[in-house]
Design a protein around this nucleic acid. Structure first.
Lengths: 123, 123, 123, 123
DNA sequence: GTGGTCTAGACCACC
DNA sequence: GTGGTCTAGACCACG
């Protein structure tokens, strides 16, 4: 569980955290049923409020990445590969739809966008 | 000058206006040196605050899409094709850089992204 | 917008509020595009924290009952009858599924439950 | 004594246990005066804390489903059919009252609810 | 110990 | 003025 918070970014902190954790789960870096550290510990480590962590955790639970048990802790949900693919696809499409909308507004054709991605996407 | 404001979008209104006007200038739908309507008129038509229009206009001027003459109004800047291309490229790259960052976070390869755009980008 | 908070209930306050508002929207007691009072005002009136109201409002927005615009306020979503029916059905089924589970645990047959509802449900 | 604990459920573990045991007694699956296993054994089998089992047992004793004899263990109470019916009825009504309240909040009539139960209650 | 809820402040961007 | 985010405390039920 490796989280970096950017204070310069305009993204809310809780969303930065959500994205990083969910990404790690999708990539399999966080094993299923692993117990996450207590939210108060995470809050202290990242030097943010407990509520901020809580909000990120809530979003993770709502999207099915983790589950929580009062008095026990929060655990990584056990997702099979197709679950993961589906979730990644959902998140991807949600963003892509907006992005494409934006690209169109700028008057770019499909070919333009692909050319730009070809050039600037370094794996 | 045809502007549509979305209530459900999370984008600030001033930014929605900025994007639509700049897009129309880029596409040549707004001719150079055309005089824009007074901000109070625009505000009334769009049913938004004058301050909101002012903010959009300021952003347009800062980015070089329009110029203002005190007491006379605001005018579309005269841009040649290379100016337009440059501006569009700047705006595009600024966004694309962030988007690519995000796609990587989701664990997508360049090929994945291109495939998705191929599929969902309908010109 | 008429809300009553029960302190004796075990339901969280934010959920009580969510249920009452959503119910009023479903019943058509709150007209579409009506502007809700500012959350700070509601908080003061109900003598609860702003955050509690905020949480209820977030849930309402997430479920599509209201939409919010920074600097302008929160508004009742414009739902047609089929939207409303669908939402009511969703909420109903979610609860009913759990309830039926519970009734079965108690060893009740379908006939038992219907008989009990016949007897105790006074419209 | 067959108990299954759900991690994803939001019900407290002690309550899940209480409901399953009481249900088994009501259904006659646990004979009167049967001696229940020591709580430490149950705790170990279910992989939960002894305190949790203790809490479930206390609830069972309070509701008259079991009785305990210090130093000897806990035993299933001997209930005749009318006792069982009464208990089941009590538990049922307590829940039903709340449920009906909730259904009304959603604007459902008695007929609506019965129709939904007819459709979704599969014995 | 854990997570779930709540409070009373505060600052920011937007309108 | 509005909503959106965040803080630093607190209390509760659960394990």
């Amino acid at each position: 569980m490796n989280i970096v918070i950017s204070n310069t970014s305009k993204k809310p902190i809780y969303q930065q955290i959500f994205e990083q954790i969910s990404s790690q789960i999708i990539k399999g870096e966080l094993q299923a049923d692993t117990c996450l550290p207590p939210i108060r510990t995470v809050a202290k480590e990242l030097r943010v409020s407990v509520i901020t962590i809580k909000k990120a955790w809530e979003e993770l639970e709502r999207k099915g990445f983790i589950y929580s048990m009062v008095g026990r802790g929060c655990f990584v949900a056990s997702l099979n590969q197709s679950d993961i693919d589906e979730k990644r696809n959902d998140m991807m499409l949600e963003k892509l739809t907006k992005d494409i909308e934006h690209y169109k507004t700028l008057g770019l054709t499909k070919a333009d966008v692909i050319k730009l991605i070809e050039r600037h996407y370094d794996d």
